[in-house]
Nucleic acid binder design. Structure first.
Lengths: 338, 338
DNA sequence: ATGAAAGCGCTAACAC
DNA sequence: GTGTTAGCGCTTTCAT
């Protein structure tokens, strides 16, 4: 039983392909096609379960009903959760997602973008790595809907969704200070993108207000956890005078806890701990770790809403919009003195 | 600057589309096209960076170079990691992945399969939910390459990759028994699929050999963690006489630890703990949790190798193959008496 | 060894 | 209102 085409339907019903096509695309009314015909076509289509071939449709219309999603690493729970929510919303709106992990690697990302473009994706959702400005710009200039999230590119004018990174770390650092901690270190990935710079800035600002010294340790981004854990352990070992440590991402935080465990450091008596991103590990660690929770649902929702909006209204005249979302500081025992 | 088509190339070079097409598809030799022509075409194509439109190609050939990946939940670290590895390998082989989460929901999965089929995916990688036998069967009968993983469907003859579930739980339960534990509970999702039944069976077999009583608690699969944690907590509260507990999946394990923490149960003094699947949380919990680690890389590798193999050799005469992989029991402090 | 042309299944401009 | 038809960009048969 071969799959039937619109031509088969038309022939069987003794009407033309056009008529069927119009009806299927909901333009029957607009084209003033007779009720009776519309019903006959609808009925038959339902009966045989005919579905237009999306490939042919895409070739003809130039739209693929596909969204390209590029995250840092799909196996990172933060990105995986967001991907999950975006996926749901996209499918509900008739779009499918093709995704890939950039590893924060510019060259890889460039390849991936060109692959997406070859595949004729209709829109892009990207957590961009450094140095990818030009590629994104040319995408935008070509009229492609592009929504950035998690971070943005200052010189590229396109939609983006971010959280209030600066306030988040500022607020969390203030919390540590209020708890009486004075020697607060900040451990993070070496990264000069908006989100990480803002986080660092929030930390510095809070310390500055209290006239405290800052201790920053930057780790190179890496897929291998040992290469993250080891430098953290070394740093903590060398700086025994610290009384608190702030981890800049969930990944750094998880590796940091590994280092702390290995070194036998007691939390919070020896060292208070806060991490960016909330994560199973932080809730279950003993003591539970104070963490900055990003509003995953709200992020995913905003991202897809903004993108679908662009996709549907072909209106280029909406200039780019940015949405900044709030985070929650979940205070747990790792950062409390009493 | 419009994207050029094969016709543009042909016109520019004063050859026919056919010639260009043959050269691009590496059939120059076979078609005995002159070296000189081949080189000219190659050079020009490289120069202008021409890429054939995959949509048109797909429409014509019926192949989409797309693999459909269906997992239980892409935000589960186990599936996310596997997806990540499969993604890498697939891209390297010119395939793209479109994925979705089934939530172990048969109706949803059915819809998703039909969507994938409409999209003309070339092959399927599926962690199937219960009750989906017929749909998978008809896929297989239609000649589609389908690789199942994590679990399989006994009545469907297609390739699958699994781990040795029965031995894994048997072995881990034996370990608990050797450590002197006698009242060992097994907490798992209510599920009648091959992998979960085998795990349960391994547990029972080990207990049976020692003549110990079994205590099984089944939890309904759910997206909401609280609805998993609560019944576990209730179970543990009601059965204070237990001296060890075995969690059947990483998700149950993580929620179980939450329950244990909330109840203030001391591990392993009050209760020894083992979980299926290894996971950050288990390594960092204090004490670290003994866990059965699945060979993620090997699973992903086998899955994609088997599928690519099917995809390339159009040989239907390879009857279905199954691969069973070994797990590692990572013994940690949560299950040791001394 | 190379080219003309058919056709994959669909949409939409244009004719009637 | 409905039908005819020309493509979208590619592969491949068949003729030369």
């Amino acid at each position: 039983m071969k799959k039937l085409s619109i031509a088969d339907i038309a022939k069987h019903l003794h009407v033309s392909k056009t008529t069927v096509s119009f009806i299927l695309n909901g333009r029957a009314q607009e084209k003033r096609i007779g009720r009776e015909v519309v019903e006959r076509v609808q009925k038959f289509v339902d009966e045989v379960g005919y579905k237009p071939n999306p490939l042919a449709k895409s070739l003809r219309t130039g739209k693929s009903n596909t969204i390209g999603l590029m995250v840092e690493d799909i196996s990172n729970p933060f990105f995986a959760s967001i991907a999950r929510l975006i996926e749901d919303r996209a499918y509900k709106n008739g779009y499918k997602i093709i995704y890939c992990s950039t590893d924060n690697d510019t060259a890889k990302t460039r390849d991936l973008i060109s692959m997406f473009r070859d595949r004729h994706v209709d829109g892009y959702i990207i957590a961009p790595p450094e140095g990818i400005e030009d590629d994104i710009s040319s995408l935008v200039k070509a009229g492609m809907p592009v929504v950035l999230f998690d971070r943005h590119l200052p010189n590229v004018s396109t939609d983006f969704i971010e959280i209030d990174n600066l306030f988040s770390t500022y607020n969390a650092t203030r919390h540590l200070i209020q708890q009486g901690y004075k020697k607060i270190a900040y451990i993070t990935f070496a990264n000069n993108q908006t989100h990480m710079l803002a986080r660092l800035e929030g930390y510095h600002r809070a310390l500055g207000e209290s006239g405290y010294e800052s201790f920053v340790k930057e780790i190179d981004f890496n897929q291998n956890d040992d290469l993250i854990t080891a430098p953290i352990a070394a740093f903590l070992k060398k700086n025994k005078n610290l009384d608190a440590v702030f981890f800049g991402t969930n990944h750094v935080g998880a590796c940091g806890l590994k280092a702390i465990t290995e070194l036998g450091i007691k939390v919070p008596t020896d060292l208070a701990v806060i991490s960016f991103d909330d994560y199973d590990v932080f809730k279950l660690f003993s003591p539970p770790i104070t963490a900055i929770a990003q509003p995953i649902e709200a992020i995913a929702d905003s991202v897809i809403t903004v993108l679908l909006n662009r996709l549907n209204t072909s209106s280029q005249h909406i200039s780019s919009q940015s949405i900044i979302l709030k985070t929650d500081l979940n205070i747990r025992r790792s950062s409390k003195t009493e």
